[in-house]
Amino acid sequence: MSNFRDTGHLFRFAGIFVAAILIFLAIRGWLVPHTFGQYGHYRGAALNEIAAKPVHFAGHQSCETCHADIAEKKSSGKHASVHCEACHGPLAAHADDPSIQPAKIDTAVLCAQCHETSAAKPKGFPEVETASHSNGVSCETCHQPHSPALEAGGAQ
């Protein structure tokens, strides 16, 4: 009995601990997100939240359903591997609602981005020094953007 009396304060101290741990466990069970641990140590719902973000690039398959003529022309030309939005930029909004006009392209900037001469480009990639090659004339005057090679019947 006296043993307990002389250690009673220790039990009070320990009691605070136990109470705190119990409260913590109770709160914890209530706070952890429901889908946590569904697939692993993370919130399972996060996967679908990230997947639900809006798309900005519609993808060339989408363009091709409406612009079949251009797609066909392009596929037989030298730009076959270049997808529509590589030049036109993200157009998902337009693909959803064609009344939204795509922005006009400045070919002087666009074509040079890919074709300006540089020793760093892989060998065999068609390069020109745009300044001397076109003499300031717009590229489309001679090349059709969707089928640029002159021999391939692209000459205007």
């Binding site: 990230i50 997947a51 973000k53 809006p54 798309v55 690039f57 591997s81 997808h83 939005e85």
Partner: peptide, 23 residues
């Protein structure tokens, strides 16, 4: 990078692949 998770789960490719002219 999310590997364009919002695109690949819809059957599209990533934005960078879509825009890459040379594959």
């Amino acid at each position: 990078c999310t590997l364009c998770y919002h695109r690949i789960t819809k059957g599209l490719t990533t934005a960078c692949c879509e825009a890459c002219p040379t594959g």
